[in-house]
């Protein structure tokens, strides 16, 4: 399922003193199965953009096409759109409300009108995907740790079996271990089920490591897009937008400056390791 965004503009509080243009003529395409990273400074329009994708907010002008069909054409189909495009908001654990973890995860599929067997199946599969063990299923979600709560909330979205998964900073405020676990679960989902993933993130490291394509938002516009390699080659432009390249690339830029023969397009720790080992061998020889 492909998502196409045509000339999307969104203005908050139009006609009042608080009027704000959050999105300005954005046109994008997200093909099926791609892992997309959405980066941008605070207030650049990322959150507004992703909330349009499943029809939670309506565009001021422009349209969002899902397999060629405008999602706002038929209001009755919006629920189906929201099932197919799962959206996990920032700090999703604040939406938990049920008595048990199991019931909370079942909220989405129940709303979608699935049969009890289907609900049971999707809840279990969602909880397993995010790596929660069976002993927590009947616990209250409020007893869990922060990282576990976050995973329950993400499972709540996954349980609807979406074809596209949008995550707004899923790792914000988590410790390194919680962060790795969630990113690992997302990566597996993408690889095994082939679902399209849109990851909003402030961490250039995470984006460099995971995604196929980056979209950079700046002042309500899609300022740049391309593969991580293409995007991070424009460090200066990124820095002007209040962003940066992954930290390792700065290390390599500095090494180059000090006269070592290293590549400067190194963006992940893995690549960095390879390049450094090669350099060490060269120096020894």
């Amino acid at each position: 399922m492909s998502i196409k965004i045509n000339h999307l503009t969104h203005i908050y509080n139009p006609g009042t003193a608080f009027e704000k243009k959050a999105l300005d003529d954005v046109s994008l395409e997200i093909p099926k199965g791609q892992f997309v990273g959405l980066i941008g400074h605070t207030g650049s329009g990322k959150s507004t953009l992703i909330q349009h994708l499943n029809g939670i907010i309506s565009p001021t002008s422009g349209e969002i096409l899902l397999d060629g069909e405008n999602i706002h054409k038929d209001k009755a189909k919006l629920k189906e759109v929201r099932r197919r495009i799962g959206l996990a908001f920032q700090y999703p654990e604040y939406q938990l409300f049920e008595m048990t973890v199991y019931k909370d995860v079942a909220f989405g599929p129940t709303n979608m009108g699935l049969s009890p067997e289907e609900i049971h199946e999707s809840v279990l599969s969602a909880l397993q995907t995010v790596g929660l063990s069976e002993e927590v299923y009947e616990k209250s979600p409020f007893e869990l740790s922060g990282g576990q709560k976050r995973r329950v909330a993400i499972a709540g979205v996954l349980a609807m079996n979406p074809e596209v998964l949008i995550l707004d900073e899923p790792t914000a405020g988590l410790d390194p271990r919680g962060r790795d676990e969630i990113l690992q679960a997302i990566k597996e989902l993408h690889e095994k089920r082939g679902i399209t993933v849109v990851l909003v993130s402030h961490s250039m490291e995470d984006v460099a490591k995971l995604v196929d394509r980056i979209i950079v938002m700046h002042r309500g516009k899609a300022a740049m897009e391309g593969t991580p390699r293409e995007i991070f080659a424009h460090v200066e432009e990124l820095e002007k937008m209040g962003l940066a390249a992954p930290q390792v690339s700065y290390v390599f830029a500095e090494l180059k400056k000090r006269g070592y023969d290293v590549p400067t397009d190194v963006y992940t720790v893995e690549e960095a390791k390879e390049a450094l080992l090669k350099l060490i061998k060269q120096v020894k020889a």
Binding site: Q51, N54, I56, I57, K79, R82, R83, G86, L87, A88, F89, P92, Y94, Q95, F107, G108, N111, M112, G156, V157, M160
Partner: peptide
């Protein structure tokens, strides 16, 4: 906060 929670539940099909 209410606005945010409403949106999050709507994303899970709440009506």
């Amino acid at each position: 906060e209410t606005d945010k929670i409403m949106k999050a539940q709507q994303a899970r099909g709440a009506d």
